[in-house]
Amino acid sequence: MVEMTERVSALAAIYETGTFGNDVDGGPSVTLHERRPLSIVHIAGNSDDQAFAGGVGKACGCALPIEPGTIATAGELSLIWLAPTRWLAVSPDQGPGILEAALRDACGESGAIIDVSHGRTVIRLSGAHARMVMMKGAPLDFHKSSFTPGRAAQSAISQCGTLITCPAEDTFDVYVFRGFGQHMWEWLTDAAGEFGYKVENPVS
C-alpha cells in the first residue's frame, strides 16, 4: 500500500476563524469558509458521443449538463459545465482517486478524466451581502434574476481565472488554482470587510 501524504489546505497558513471587518448593525452579513476536503475531477469529451455522455451520467448519477453555464446535481455531487467539451465533477471527498476511477471506468477511452482535487482552492461565500462581494470582483451579471442557483461561469477576479458557481440563494463558490488560493482569500476577505464577515471552519 502506498503511503498517502496528508492533504494540506493552501490557506492553512492564513486561515483564522472569527468575526472580522466593519462592526455593522445586525452583525456580519457575509460568511466565508473554505470548502474542503473535496474530490474534484476535470472531464473532457464529446457530449454527442453516447459512450462518453452516458458514462459520465452513470458515474455521477446525473445527466451531463449541455447548456452553457449550468450545473447538474446528484445528491452532494455537482457536475459543472465549464466550456464546450469540458466539465468539472465536484463532491465531498470520496478518498484518493475514487471519483476519478469511477468516471474512468464508466467512460473508458471516450473521455479524458483527470483528478484535480489537490489543485483547486474553493471558497464559499454566503449571506445577505455575498452577492455584493461577487459584484465587486468579476465582470459578470450578478443580478438575482440572472445569476441564479444552478448557474456557473468562468471569469476573472483580481486578474485570477476563477470558476464561480451559485449552489443556492445568496451562496457562491469561488474556484481558483491552488497557487492563487491565498491571494483570492485575501481579496475576498478584503472585499467583504465593509459588510463585516465571519469565517467558519472549513467544511466540504
Binding site: 453555464g69 466550456a83 465582470p139 459578470l140 461561469a153 471569469s155
Partner: peptide, 11 residues
C-alpha cells in the same frame, strides 16, 4: 458564441 455577453477584459 457559448457564454453570451461578457466583458472585454475576459477576451
Amino acid at each position: 458564441p457559448w457564454c453570451g455577453d461578457r466583458a472585454l477584459q475576459e477576451f
